[in-house]
C-alpha cells in the first residue's frame, strides 16, 4: 500500500519540487498552501507523513504541528519540519513540539527522500 505524504508550504516553487520528487519516489502526495488548509485536509487525506514548512501566513508550522499532536488519532503521523530558519532554538522548538525531523532549507533531495523512507519504513 502506498504511503501518503502531505506537503504544506506556501512557496509554490518548493511545493512543485517536492511534489515531483516524492511522486517519483512512489508516494501518494497531497498539497496544502497554508496551515489552515493542512489541518482541514488531514482528516480526509489521512497522511502517513506531513512535510511542514514553518514560516506560513496565519497558522504557522509550529502551530499545525502542536494541533496535530493534540489529537490521539494523529499521534502516529510522522512530521518533518522544513524551514529556511536553521538556528538551534528553532530546531529544538520544532522537535519539542513533536516533530520527528527538522530539515533546514536548502536540502539535498536524496537525503530528504532517504530520511522520509526511513521514517515510514520504521512505522
Amino acid at each position: 500500500m502506498t504511503k501518503k505524504v502531505l506537503i504544506v508550504d506556501d512557496e509554490q516553487n518548493i511545493v512543485t519540487a517536492l511534489e515531483y520528487l516524492l511522486g517519483q519516489s512512489g508516494y501518494q502526495v497531497e498539497v496544502a498552501q497554508n496551515g489552515e488548509e493542512a489541518l482541514a485536509v488531514v482528516d480526509s487525506f489521512a497522511p502517513d507523513l506531513v512535510l511542514l514548512d514553518v514560516m506560513m501566513p496565519r497558522v504557522n508550522g509550529y502551530e499545525v504541528c502542536r494541533r496535530l499532536r493534540e489529537r490521539p488519532e494523529w499521534r502516529h503521523v510522522k512530521i518533518v519540519m522544513l524551514s529556511a530558519k536553521g538556528r538551534e532554538v528553532e530546531v529544538s522548538k520544532g522537535i519539542s513540539l513533536g516533530a520527528d525531523l527538522y530539515v533546514v532549507k536548502p536540502f539535498s533531495n536524496t537525503e530528504l527522500v532517504a530520511q522520509i523512507d526511513a521514517l515510514l519504513a520504521g512505522a
Binding site: 512557496e11 518548493i14 517536492l18 520528487l21 529556511a84 538556528r87 536524496t110
Partner: peptide, 25 residues
C-alpha cells in the same frame, strides 16, 4: 539576519532542488 537568511534560502531551496532533479533524473 534571520530574515535575510530566510529570504536567501527560500529561492536557493528551489534552485538546488530542481538543479538536483535535472542533474540526476
Amino acid at each position: 539576519l534571520s530574515t535575510v537568511t530566510h529570504e536567501l534560502r527560500t529561492p536557493l531551496t528551489s534552485i538546488r532542488s530542481f538543479g538536483e532533479i535535472l542533474a540526476r533524473d
